[in-house]
Design a protein around this nucleic acid. Sequence first.
DNA 1: GAGTGGTCTAGACCACGAG
DNA 2: TCGTGGTCTAGACCACTCA
Lengths: 253, 253
Amino acid sequence: MITKSITIRDDFQIDGDKDIPLYKRLYRTIARRIAEAEWRPGDVLPSEVDLARNYGVAPGTMRKAIDALADDGLIERRHGCGTFIRRPNFDNMMLRFFLFRDAQGRQILPESELLLREAVLPPRHIASHLKLDDGERAIKLIRHRHWEEAPRLLEDIYLPLKRFEALMDHPVTDIGPLLYPEYERLCGELVCFIAEEIRIEDASIEDAVDLRLSKGELVVAIERLAKDAAGWPIEWRVSRGEARRFRYRLNVN
Amino acid sequence: MITKSITIRDDFQIDGDKDIPLYKRLYRTIARRIAEAEWRPGDVLPSEVDLARNYGVAPGTMRKAIDALADDGLIERRHGCGTFIRRPNFDNMMLRFFLFRDAQGRQILPESELLLREAVLPPRHIASHLKLDDGERAIKLIRHRHWEEAPRLLEDIYLPLKRFEALMDHPVTDIGPLLYPEYERLCGELVCFIAEEIRIEDASIEDAVDLRLSKGELVVAIERLAKDAAGWPIEWRVSRGEARRFRYRLNVN
DNA sequence: GAGTGGTCTAGACCACGAG
DNA sequence: TCGTGGTCTAGACCACTCA
């Protein structure tokens, strides 16, 4: 009842102060509604003219906000059809860094093995990345991803417990190989942005054993911070794999 | 004389077919004028309203084209001041991949040593990247970049001879440590876009010697294709450095 | 044919920078 | 004060999708 009245009151309120440009406030407002799962991936948004009328702005202004949301990949425009909430596809993105391909050059989806799932007090720097309060707990996952019958990617993952509690209650065997769809299915959390840092370092003794590397070999470590549609951090992870298998493409302007 | 009359005739002609949206044709038209060095870095463009009037389009349409050019980094808008041709700063970009920093964490500009400069028939795959005609020659440069009294980055560079002939005639000692400004100064060529591929591989015997690596160590190889404002390739290079010094950050939507 | 996004127009008013 | 880019409005017409 209360929820509903809040929803109605909020429905076409525009977030943010008056000194911020309207189109930016509209962007944030719609991004928040996606982050709060009011609109789900696959849903169609109201048409531009309807949205503009509902929020009481000119069509051109609403269009500019929607353009920016599309540029950032939160929504997808389909001419003559409508504007849809996108389901970002990041989970297998780690693989884009590595040469996990079959004989035909097709990308392979490695099997996943979940080795640990427990609520912990995370290290300070991770808590700070996740913007946790003092003493707030996180879920720690350790996962190995296999290819050609050996672990190729070792992942340490931290999630804020309060938003991912459903993940703790769920049978481990029922958690699929791609985590981001599971975050959405079990916890209603949608990853929309990621920031990564890549570096090369000596394999730790444990990692060398797990990755079947000989002494002194190098690993690529990819640190990732994942954020929801509103830009709030919801996952921190680090993945390590054999350096020799690394490759990456990028474009810069 | 001829040049001038062509310039005048072209001045406010819009490139491209009528079935391409106007704002895209305006984008290409202005990008071409930058690529052809009609406008140089630092120059101020005519104001939006003037441009729109000159090309006979609505201000909003011209604005959309200019916005896209600014998004792609070819120009820079300064509120209350004007719109300026940007001088992209890519040359020291290779360094962003490596930990070349001093004790205070500031980025260091390594010294350059030009070891080779000659006109060659480039390998087939490089000729194809540069879109050279059959038998068309390229300038090959080999360059080492030094830091802490040792070569840290080995670069093989290929340039289409016909656009970079001025570089062959110039005394080697007068070519500065940053190449892209020299391309502009000596040849009038401006790098506006780059695409890179990064991979990790075993050091070749020669590279291991040059980089002071012991046997079996790894290097990062960064392949780069650089393009002018109109998107035409003007430089291909590969740079190799010690893998252990590699690190990189990126954001993805 | 109805409804959607895509393009283009035309202009008002504001905020900023420099003379 | 003037000219610039930045924002916002209001609406026309086109191109595409789907029933």
